[in-house]
Write a protein that binds this DNA or RNA. Structure first.
Lengths: 207, 207, 207, 207
DNA sequence: GATGAATGAGGGTTCATTCAT
DNA sequence: TATGAATGAACCCTCATTCAT
């Protein structure tokens, strides 16, 4: 009772529904996934979903909040663990992001494909978790710029967007290939290489 | 009269429908846009749409082919005009892409948001125009690598994905801000800077 | 409560829908009857029909099964009650059939008119209940032939078809006349007379 | 011009449309056959059909008139040729009817299945050709009764209905079997046998 | 809380019919 | 006459949401 009043169901139904939604959204897309499918996958009645979520939109938003909280936490931990230069931290971030993708492709599928979709989520919904995500990334960049490790050519917020875009697209192409065509975790090095050193053949300072 | 005898309506109804679809998809999303809305915007009857397109899915796919053909042509032209190094060509590509985005935000909105939506379009539909798009970009990179202008650290196909992801994300954030927050065309330089030279403060070879 | 736990709605919605469908099909024909009409007549929402039937076709097939089960049972009972010769049994069958017609003209209308409509019902649907119906009739004939009561001039299956055709056509002409022009139950004697003794003026064997 | 003003197209388009309609109705049913299909089969434009027929209903009615005129004429000729007793004439009628069925299964299909269907044609349309058909049959019976050749047990109009019903049902079952299961023309003898002599084992007058 | 039968608005699609050429 | 592109009313069916139990 005490636990329930805190908004945490003792039976974990909310989580089961969110996990079921993740699966269904990944498989069929937000519009293709039916509430009945999700309820069935979660082992609850259709109506039960409405005890935990206002409506289908709210379910997607709630899923996003739920999943992103974990993602941001793990990325933040990875960054924190990577003591040292901005380069090291960015590398840790990128690797952690693509590792998460490979570990939970269903979640990645929804994040990468479904979440862009509707004006409901990108236009009206402020998306605080995604803002946290970008802030984590841009924070590392900003710090690196302040410390003189990174070029100031690109404003941190945009640099973060660019890196996220690169990661996201790489994740998407990996997911579409069924995870077969290349090693997504090793692909992290490509993103690191391109966004840190660039494609141009460097004429590094000679000793 | 003579023109009509070719069996192709001179009234350009197909194009009007495609343009109306672009507008409606951009505004409401694929699932949110109603056939009736599109017909109304195109100034035709609902049924007329089905004289030109098999169904709503086919309308989106057809729109994609129609729009991407132009996009790829313009990007190819921009690349062709940019004689010289791979660096110059990539810069031209990126600028042209973001210029197109700024010139036709509705089209960009659909491309960037709606096209990711899985089932019919990324999973089932092979998307030959998008493949052309990526091929154009990876071709420039591959050539640059062969000429020794670009590093071989990243395979051309993945480098192209990374650049596209960066561009796409930048375009999306610009579109979501209503085109107000920053100059998307000038943002091209950020993408160029990051993907060619990288973020790391270069210690260029000094004489 | 206890009854409901069986998973079968005690409110008899399925039967109400079938009865409403019977009425609407009789009045407007299968294609003319709208799902909304049937739902309205049954006092349920449109969507409710789809909880009990896959689609409109399934509704007609289900109606047929539902109604024919009763018809065959009653005809079988009539035949069973008519102990004695094949002649007696056939007479009982014919009278029972036309009595049913007069008692439920709507059902007869649908059976006689709508069910012939080809595609879904006679060509694809195997119609097991109608097969039962014919089997009952041909069984009586076959038995009569074996016992030497009936001529072997016509194979039982075809004789059954011929009798059914006669009954069906008589029912149809009665239904089209609004049941006013003649007494359908007494018309049974005509069918009996013709199919058992024939039209030809019999020169019965004289002692 | 003179010929056309008489309502007879010199190019025979009306007939081509009627023949095409027959084929399409037989294949797909009245509701399943599309005007576009019929126009295509007739080698005319959709709109052309409306130069010859008021609407789709009128097309079916017109087809019926067109086809029944021929059927009645041929049956009348068969009856006329069969000089002699009512028995002979009825036999000729039945054989001619089933011969027509076997010669033109498509027409038979429409007559037997589609024409019953809609209230448009049985309830509102007076169906004068079908009345002619029944009149021909009942006329033979009436005459036979007057001449004492046939029993007066069944009123001629109803006897005609019964024979037609038998024929129609036999035709339908033959058509549904794709004309493979039995010889429809030889089946004529069954109808003759049953409706003239009946099923009951006759104890014919002994010499 | 939990259920799931019931709801009914909504929309994609069809196709008989029209009419400008 | 003939055409066939265009029309738009009509309708089956889906599915998010509700609510009596």
């Amino acid at each position: 009772m005490a636990a329930q009043s805190a908004g945490v169901s003792t039976s974990g139904k909310r989580e089961r529904i969110l996990a079921a939604a993740e699966m269904c959204f990944a498989e069929a897309g937000f519009f293709g996934a039916k509430i009945a499918d999700i309820a069935n996958a979660a082992g609850v009645a259709d109506g039960t979903i409405y005890l935990y979520f206002r409506n289908k939109d709210d379910l997607l938003i709630s899923w996003f909040e739920w999943r992103m909280e974990e993602v941001v936490a793990r990325l933040a931990a990875a960054v924190a663990d990577a003591a040292g230069s901005a380069e090291t931290k960015l590398t840790a971030f990128v690797r952690a992001y693509l590792t998460l993708t490979s570990e939970n492709p269903a979640a990645a599928e929804v994040l990468t494909v479904e979440l862009r979709q509707s004006s409901k989520f990108i236009k009206e919904y402020k998306n605080p978790r995604f803002a946290d995500f970008l802030k984590l990334l841009s924070g590392v960049i900003e710090e690196g710029q302040k410390r003189g490790e990174l070029s100031r050519a690109v404003p941190p917020a945009h640099a973060a967007r660019i890196i996220f875009g690169a990661l996201d697209e790489l994740a998407r192409s990996w997911l579409l290939g069924g995870g077969q065509k290349f090693d997504i975790v090793r692909a992290a090095d490509w993103v690191v290489s391109m966004t840190l050193s660039g494609l141009v053949q460097q004429k590094r300072s000679t000793p």
